[in-house]
Design a binder for these strands. Structure first.
Lengths: 344, 344
DNA sequence: GTGAAAGCGCTAACAT
DNA sequence: ATGTTAGCGCTTTCAC
């Protein structure tokens, strides 16, 4: 039976103070483990907090000090790789007073602006931006407003810290793996990019660069062959179709992302071909489904969990000391060799 | 060069009022589209807001009224089905002043309690809880504190609205599909459940129920065979091993979730069998990877997007009128027949 | 070590 | 229709 909505007023710091027979200042100090509260005072206050079931209001706190909230901007909640990063962030923040809140599906510059504004409006103590599309100028502006860590984007800033995998090396791992299997005509499908800043900073561009460099390093410069589409399943499908139509068909395709590789496999199947017997296929990201038996995709594992823990740690450091010089963490990816690649 | 951190004070409602030559009340009214502001007043205020780049502080608002924030609790960010729900929520909320913030990876009752507390502490205007494990009693308590919609859990409450797919029907779809293909020994892998409330409310239990009911309805009651493990890849692997060891091996396995079906496929492969030639396999959820060519899993599609839009709509309604009677929305799943099932 | 009191930026009740 | 003002719950000087 729906009892009449009892608008039980929230327990406030004043209630706690009264109950414990101390001042609100004292309660506030205990809450923040601040200096100037004797052990017996702490005990009294904590007892009162427990008895009354007091919980601090983040809004009220935010008006004066911290909100104990950290925002994470996630471009695409469907990419399981991002979940690894989140796990790392949560693991690092577990046990602290901080709560992680995620804003997802902001896959455009205006969408990202909306989300970052929302986080700033909510007085978040810090933000972690994952693979942002936002311009450098705006990123700097955000970072000057709130402690910021940018993940998965290369480039150096004086105001925010960065954490990223070394995509250049990762692309090299795939090329080395395929070359080691005897492949020479190794093609690549990249995410098309023209913006000059992004060409230098975005992972997709760095992967394509790493591919080119590694091909040269293995003496395969003449076989460099890039289909330029997008990092989507359809982009993979179209890219593979282009590559299959070449006079000299490649014997291996390195897709810039696992989801792209799925499209490649679809295109192969439609052409009556299969991996690895006809063509070897490799991806990038080691997303969850890459490991599934029927797929078993050779790919590059980015240390997602470590990316997350590093990002969270850097953010906490910056919240503590916002003027400390910025740090760039670069992690090493590893090869996950599976059954879509085979000797030529 | 890191210019000295300019602690530019945030533009406040007072600045706007002064700039526009009006009172703060006026500004507040314009912000909330409240009654009592003449068109020319509105124009003046909006102009001042734009010129100064004013943005309301959610903390300050929260202290008095709304925060324009909606919290979504997500048990597992890796299940792509949940992403569909989120898309639906975002689609419904797009264009409103509400910002969706997600708290993820709280896959335990204490974890859920932590997250819901955090949302309440932050004065969120409403919360959407997806497939919560939390007890009925606590759910009711939460819903009495903040407008709440519970998604993906059956059962009726007087204080919160619910949206769920009809898992009973969904399980029936799979059984009918397999029976139609001539299968009789159709086994099921369920997520083990003992708690009586959950037996009635949790989707996994309802799916198992639907399976039993449908088997009887097709005159296959004697072939009912359930392996009780967990909704994980490993649970699927172990469940399939149990089923394969039966004296009378099933000809079809209905896994309670797609991820479980992945484990089943692994177990089949390890036993030198394959789907569908040796055994038909079906899942539940129509997660993204189910559609990938090499997997092509027969499964049940829950109308995730619709679940999301409905949940968001109900939540907005309840925020507007918290005393309105609660609603239960039940949506119909559909069959996604693919290549892991075949005629006997 | 402790407490009184002044705000933080906003909303809403109450004048006018 | 518009303005004045008292808080919302907390943190933080600044006295004691």
């Amino acid at each position: 039976m729906p009892r009449p909505p009892v608008p039980t007023r929230r327990v406030t710091i004043i209630d706690v103070a009264r109950h414990a027979g101390v001042s609100t200042t004292a309660v506030s100090k205990v809450l923040r483990n601040a200096y100037g509260a004797s052990p017996q005072m702490q005990a009294k206050v904590r007892a009162a907090i427990d008895e009354l079931g007091y919980r601090p209001s983040a809004s009220a706190r935010g008006l004066r000090g911290q909100t104990y909230t950290i925002g994470v901007m996630l471009p695409d909640i469907r990419n399981p790789f991002f979940a690894d990063i989140l796990d790392g962030i949560n693991a690092q923040l577990d046990g602290t007073d901080y709560q992680v809140l995620i804003a997802a599906s902001c896959n455009s510059e205006p969408g990202e602006a909306h989300v970052t504004d929302a986080m700033i409006d909510r007085n978040m103590d810090g933000v972690i931006l994952i693979a942002p599309l936002t311009s450098r100028q705006r990123l700097d502006r955000i970072a000057r407003t709130v402690p910021t860590v940018v993940v998965g984007r290369h480039g150096h800033s004086a105001v925010y810290d960065t954490v990223a995998d070394d995509d250049f090396v990762g692309a090299g791992l795939i090329v080395a793996h395929l070359a080691g299997l005897g492949h020479r005509r190794i093609a690549h499908i990249e995410h098309h990019e023209t913006d000059p800043v992004r060409l230098a900073e975005m992972p997709n561009a760095v992967r394509a660069d790493g591919y080119r460099h590694a091909m040269h390093a293995h003496g395969l410069g003449e076989h460099i062959d890039i289909a330029s589409t997008t990092y989507t399943q359809q982009g993979g499908y179209l890219g593979a179709q282009q590559l299959l139509a070449r006079p000299q068909r490649p014997t291996a395709i390195f897709a810039g992302a696992d989801i792209v590789a799925m499209g490649v496999l679809d295109a192969l199947a439609d052409a009556g071909l299969s991996a690895p017997s006809d063509i070897s296929v490799a991806g990038y990201d080691n997303t969850t489904f890459a490991a599934f038996g029927p797929i078993s995709l050779t790919t590059v594992d980015q240390a997602g969990h470590q990316i997350g823990t590093n990002a969270a740690r850097l953010l906490l450091d910056r919240i503590t000391d916002s003027s400390r010089p910025t740090t760039q963490v670069k992690l090493s990816p590893t090869l996950a060799a599976r059954r879509t690649t085979a000797p030529l």
